[in-house]
Structures are given as structure tokens and as C-alpha cells.
Design a protein around this nucleic acid. Structure first.
Lengths: 211, 211
DNA sequence: GTCTATACGAAGATAGAC
DNA sequence: GTCTATCTTCGTATAGAC
């Protein structure tokens, strides 16, 4: 199987303009650059198979290049990881703003987006979770920083730090469970939606002290 | 292969009541059987260094034996993992009973024990978390089963399934964060204790009757 | 029960051809 | 930019000595 050389093709229209990591010759646009495809492949393998299966060979193959090809773009495995972390930071920053300005409120938005639906941020985040569980120091720090940002937004929204912490922990729990479960089927997602509504109703009780 | 299943032989040895409490036997280098020491070493390396660093060589060395010595007790790495999972199941079963019969209430007990303080259960649980993040199927299933047991107890305690879920998620979040942070220092644990009290106060709001 | 020696393959990384 | 060797180290597992 696996006739298509291009491993992953989920992300679409977004123009890969901002790239904090080293980008050799990011010419033009159109289809995803090899660098982007490599990062996509890396994240996907990390999410689906865990840290151990995310070898340079596996990543290269999934992106449709050879190991040597990969190593042209990322001089070492750690360079690949660093670029992945940079990518997460960018995506998380956008997300934090989305939470802050969410029409339905920060809590509602945070909780609802705390389950993996396969979004680019989900993939980047869960991929980093795998690296963090492998005790990669910078991955742990990156997750911690992002989490602090989210917590801060929730604090601003609900006022009380302890309440914000409780909500943040629910989010952590949801994401953690979600990252262990396989990607749910479409109908399963729908079923989860109802559960999600009820959960939010319950959590609303936490915020009944707004002053 | 292996017509002689010398490999793994469960962890049946009945443990003296002090199982859930910290084993007073100083470190992991004395009287315990080699099998136990190997499992202790495996879990500790998994917790401290992640899945990748938990190689047979590292485990054997930490337990004070050679690779060959380890392989006498556990015929393969997977046998080692299976034994580790069995160990978690036993410890978690005891813990579930402790939660159910906790004087301060199930919720209070669950939440308070959802931060890593280095107990045998903590180590077994977090070690399994590492394996689960490495996408080890049985590790994922084991965690899921244990979690369902805890959730069930909380449900019995608080009555409402959705409220129970919220509390369970807070527990998941706490454990997840705790497993990423390094083992905190004694004073840090104390500081956390106050935060824990406040968190429980907040969570108490969830259990307010909603008729 | 535990050790040493070794087979075998996988993983990260380099060199250089195209 | 990408590929094909190739080197080296590491990880799992086997065989057999003590």
C-alpha cells in the first residue's frame, strides 16, 4: 500500500509564510515545501506512533524523501524537534488570541478546543506532548509556557485564579485523554459534542462567583 | 519460539499491607527480589527518562544485574512491560478501594492523590503513562480501565455523571502535569498543598445540588 | 541466577555523487 | 535538493559458560 509518496496532506490553504526556523530556500508558495511536509510527517508519526517510531527514516519516508533528503533540511534530529517546537509556539500564540477573543467566552472556547479533532494545532500540540513524555527538556518547557498563557487568559476571564486553575486542569485532562485515544470517528465526535455541552454546564457552576 | 516460558511470572507475591505506602526499605538496592528490583528500575527510568531511555541495558544496570541477568527474569522487553502493567493493576485496585472508603470523601482523596509524590502507585502509573504515550496498546487499555474504575467511584460519590467527569478530568490534568514536572522538592510539595486546598474548595462548588 | 560474548538489525549522522 | 552508500553506536535477543 501507500502508493502516494506524499505522506500527509491535511493542512491546506494557509500560506506557510511565517517560519521561525531555518528555511533554506523557501521559494514561492503553492504546494507545501519539503520542509513543511517533513514537519507534518514528523508530527503525524509522533501523534500516531509515539516518540520511538518517529525515526528519521520513518519521517523521511512519510514525507516522500530519503534520510539524506531530510538531513539537508534539518541537520540533526534535534534540529527537527526544535523546528517542530517553533511551529507549535506560533500556532499556540494564534490560538491564545482566539481564546481571548472568543464570542462564546474564553472558557467555552478553551474547553471545546481541548479535544483532538486533528487540527494543525492539535497535531503540533500532541506531537510535543509525546516529546515531553520522552523527557525532552525544551518540549516540556514549551508546553509549560503555552499552558501558562492559556491559564492567564482564563484567569482574566473568570477572575479567580483558583477557579481558572480548575478549568485549566479540566482542559489538560481532556487533551491528555484525547491524545491517548485514537482519532475518533466522525459520529463519535458528534456523540462527544453532547457530553461536552453537559460538561460546560457543570463547569459553569464554578464561575458562579463573578464579581 | 520459547517453549520454556521462563519469562515473566506475574507479581503474585502477596504484599504486606505497606504496599500503598512508601516502601520503607530505603532505596531499591537491597533485600527486594531481583524481579522486583528490575521492575522498580524499569519504572523509575521510565518516569525519569522516558520510554527511549528505558532500555534493557539501562534497566539491568540500575537493578545491578547484566542484560543477560535481566533476560533470565523477563524473556523479552514486552514481558517486562506486561509485568509492569500487572503491577500497576494490582496497585491501582488497592488504590480504588482506598478512594471509595476515604474518610474525607472520594473526591477529596482522589484529587489529593492526583499529584506525584513518588508513591509506588505514582511510579507505576506514570511509568505506564510513558508507555501509553509510546502508543503501547495494552498500556493505553490498562490506563483506560483504571481510569474507568476511578470515575465509577466518583460517580457513586457525587451522584451526577457529568460532575464526576469534570472531577475526573481535573484529576487527569493534575496527574498529567505532575508527570511532566520533575519530582518536586519537599518544600515545593508543601506549597502545593495550600494550592490543593484552594482547588478543593473550588471543586466543592461542583457538588452543590442542582435541583 | 547471573555473567560474557556475540549475532543482527535499527537509528543517527557523514560523504560525496548526480 | 535529493539520493545512495557507509560508518558507528545502540538495543534486543540468543548461546552457552560459570
Amino acid at each position: 500500500m501507500t502508493s502516494i509518496p506524499v505522506g500527509y496532506h491535511g493542512v491546506m490553504p494557509l500560506a506557510p509564510s511565517s517560519h521561525t526556523a531555518a528555511s533554506p530556500t523557501a521559494s514561492r508558495s503553492a504546494a507545501a515545501s519539503t520542509t513543511e511536509r517533513l514537519l507534518d510527517a514528523f508530527e503525524e508519526i509522533l501523534v500516531d506512533g509515539g516518540e520511538r517510531s518517529a525515526t528519521l527514516g520513518a519521517v523521511a519516508a512519510a514525507a516522500g524523501v530519503s534520510k539524506g533528503g531530510l538531513l539537508y533540511h534539518f541537520a540533526s534530529k534535534d534540529a527537527l524537534i526544535e523546528a517542530q517546537l517553533d511551529r507549535l509556539v506560533v500556532r499556540a500564540a494564534e490560538d491564545t488570541e482566539n481564546i481571548r477573543t472568543a464570542p462564546a467566552g474564553a472558557v467555552d472556547h478553551l474547553i471545546r478546543t481541548s479535544v483532538n479533532i486533528g487540527s494543525p494545532l492539535d497535531r503540533s500540540f500532541i506531537a510535543t506532548t509525546r516529546l515531553a513524555q520522552g523527557r525532552h527538556e525544551k518540549a516540556i518547557e514549551t508546553l509549560d509556557t503555552i499552558r501558562k498563557g492559556w491559564l492567564s487568559v482564563i484567569e482574566d476571564s473568570v477572575g479567580d485564579p483558583d477557579t481558572a486553575l480548575a478549568i485549566m486542569l479540566v482542559s489538560d485532562g481532556l487533551y491528555g485523554n484525547s491524545s491517548l485515544a485514537g482519532m475518533p470517528s466522525a459520529p463519535a465526535v458528534k456523540a462527544e459534542a453532547e457530553s461536552m455541552d453537559r460538561l460546560l454546564t457543570v463547569l459553569a457552576r464554578l464561575c458562579t462567583r463573578t464579581e
